[in-house]
């Protein structure tokens, strides 16, 4: 039974966290690519840092076994190529696979369209897999981690990632403050009340247009 209840409970919490953060809204999410709203970066890196520190300290204290956690295997070139393709699709869709499910669940038609597109894309890639498999399985590096790549202790890399994230948060706040300032002056200058995009940028009220 726990093979259903556990993933279901984790999924419910996952979906609620994404929705609370505003990541079920494609307009808010795409602010990341136009530097008007850096919620994606802030949420992702707060989550990565939290889970990374949790795994590090819990395993150090002996409460969890690192070996018991499935470590993604690295296939470097296909993963970088896949990332490039994925990122282009991400900017088009305005949602990623997880957030498209949240957008669809909260009534957004564009979320449902992304869900349908994802299904078709995965289906197409699966059907053409005999052509892709050589590249897919190339450049296999096993369970390769940043500490072994950099020849640095695990704890040192964890600490460095925390520092990079904190620097990133500081930069994100400055970028958002600057964008808001520019937005406000252009608003008074052009006399064009672009309320929807400003509200989306502030995250105060998501501006969905009625279908």
């Amino acid at each position: 039974m726990s093979d259903i209840l556990l993933p279901l409970a984790i999924g419910i919490a996952f979906g609620a966290a994404l929705e609370r953060a505003g990541l079920g809204n494609a307009r808010k999410l795409t602010g990341q690519f136009y530097l008007t709203d850096l919620t994606v970066f802030k949420v992702m890196f707060s989550a990565i840092v939290t889970a990374m520190l949790g795994v590090f300290w819990l395993s150090r204290l002996g409460w969890i076994d690192l070996e018991a956690i499935a470590m993604p295997e690295t296939y470097l070139r296909p993963q970088i190529a896949g990332g490039l393709v994925f990122g282009a699709g991400f900017a088009l869709a305005g949602l990623c696979p997880g957030t498209s499910c949240v957008a669809a669940a909260s009534g957004r038609g564009d979320g449902l369209a992304v869900v349908a597109g994802l299904f078709s894309g995965v289906l197409l890639a699966g059907l053409s897999f005999p052509l892709l498999i050589d590249f897919y399985d190339s450049d296999a590096r096993g369970a390769w981690t940043l500490p072994s790549l950099l020849h640095l202790p695990y704890g040192f890399v964890v600490f460095a990632v925390v520092l990079v994230a904190l620097g990133g948060f500081f930069a994100a706040e400055r970028i958002e403050a600057r964008t808001l300032r520019i937005g406000r002056t252009s608003l008074t200058a052009s006399d064009q009340p672009s309320l929807t995009s400003r509200e989306a940028a502030v995250g105060a009220k998501p501006a969905a247009r009625q279908a």
């Binding site: 992702m44 989550a47 993604p72 896949g82 393709v85 699709g89 869709a93 897919y136």
Partner: peptide
């Protein structure tokens, strides 16, 4: 966009959740 992401996610063995978040936290 969804279809393009789907193809990318197959090649990359995951997406923003399975690779960026999960693998990101595991370094």
């Amino acid at each position: 966009g969804g279809a393009v992401m789907g193809i990318g996610a197959v090649l990359a063995r995951g997406c923003t959740s399975g690779q960026a978040l999960t693998g990101g936290a595991l370094l």
